[in-house]
């Protein structure tokens, strides 16, 4: 039994990441939070628009995008990667729409065809040009968030600010948060009622593609840390958990940020205890929070549902 569950050393798990090893784990927790919060904010709208699968698709199909961008530009600069990811995201969205509109194949099947094929092309590209592309398949699939602490700091005016990928992720998360707040009204109405949005002059197609572009940039910046598979969890879990707790969109967005912070901090502690991959531990922590919300949510939780209750008469009449 002792071999199965690692020893639990409260000091090592709870104290040291905030003291002796804070220089390492502080950055990892921050990076985990930034990745999850950027993904989660976009993810809220994927959930409300019933497009969770599209998030899945784009997280995979950015792979050939960044591989080709790297081959063409011979650089791993963030802007090159963003360019590749944006192009891949738009191509994916276009292909899904085209297959779905110009054939009898339905949208879910079209998504399955597009993302798996593009992902496979990406894997082939990486293995063909392995010597030129500085990406390895494991890292692409699972990511390696622990490496952030080893990166050199980005310096502004000679002062070290943050490791490069943390810095880039911070910018991406800040841009996403700003856009989501600025265009709250437009995102809300186009997600709730695309007919009304169109009649108000908010083009649903433009909103759709803008969201897909934002999603591609977020996914590619999260890529190196959490990989193509786990990023889906970061997209869906915060919003889904928040959705179970509240009936208001602004609260849902705030709660998804809280979920991101909690799952990142809890996940890092879990990873230290179990000595496992940090990104997976963050996802498991996030899933644990989802489970708690599902069971204990005051209005919609499993327990609240079991409790006999009287609905107001008008509500019961629906």
């Amino acid at each position: 039994m002792n071999d199965f569950i690692p020893n639990f050393d409260a000091r090592a798990v709870f104290v040291s990441p905030w003291t002796d090893t804070f220089a390492t784990y502080g950055w990892i927790m921050l990076m985990g939070f930034l990745v999850t919060v950027a993904c989660g904010l976009i993810g809220n709208y994927l959930i409300l628009r019933r497009m969770a699968l599209v998030g899945d698709a784009i997280s995979h199909s950015v792979l050939p995008g960044i591989a080709i961008a790297f081959l063409v530009a011979q650089s791993r600069h963030s802007l090159v990667m963003f360019g590749g990811a944006l192009a891949a995201g738009i191509v994916t969205t276009l292909l899904i729409e085209t297959i779905h509109r110009r054939s009898r194949v339905k949208q879910d099947a079209a998504i399955g065809i597009v993302f798996s094929s593009l992902f496979a092309v990406g894997v082939i590209l990486i293995s063909l040009f392995a010597s030129q592309i500085d990406l390895d398949a494991d890292c692409v699939l699972y990511g390696e968030i622990s490496f952030v602490a080893l990166e050199p700091l980005v310096t502004i005016g000679g002062i070290g600010i943050a490791p490069e990928s943390v810095f880039v992720m911070f910018l991406v998360a800040a841009v996403v948060a700003t856009l989501v707040i600025l265009f709250y009204k437009e995102l809300l109405v186009s997600s709730f009622d695309s007919g009304l949005a169109a009649s108000l002059g908010i083009n649903p197609t433009i909103m759709h593609y803008s969201l897909m572009c934002a999603l591609s940039v977020v996914v590619v910046s999260a890529f190196r840390s959490v990989g193509a598979i786990l990023v889906i969890a970061m997209l869906i879990l915060p919003g889904a958990t928040a959705f179970l707790i509240t009936y208001r969109l602004p609260k849902m967005m705030v709660l998804s940020v809280v979920h991101s912070a909690l799952s990142s901090v809890l996940g890092v502690h879990l990873a230290i205890w179990l000595d496992c991959a940090v990104a997976s531990a963050i996802v498991v922590a996030g899933a644990g929070l989802f489970l708690l919300a599902w069971i204990f949510s005051p209005t919609q939780g499993l327990i609240a549902r079991f409790r006999p209750q009287l609905l107001p008469i008008e509500a019961a009449r629906t």
């Binding site: 009204k185 709730f192 908010i202 959705f243 009936y247 969109l249």
Partner: peptide
Amino acid sequence: ESVDWDFPVNVMDVVLMGRYG
């Protein structure tokens, strides 16, 4: 039936959408 009535908004939110234009 064209909208999802499970959407996380309340009555006031929906009516305010009429002002967006």
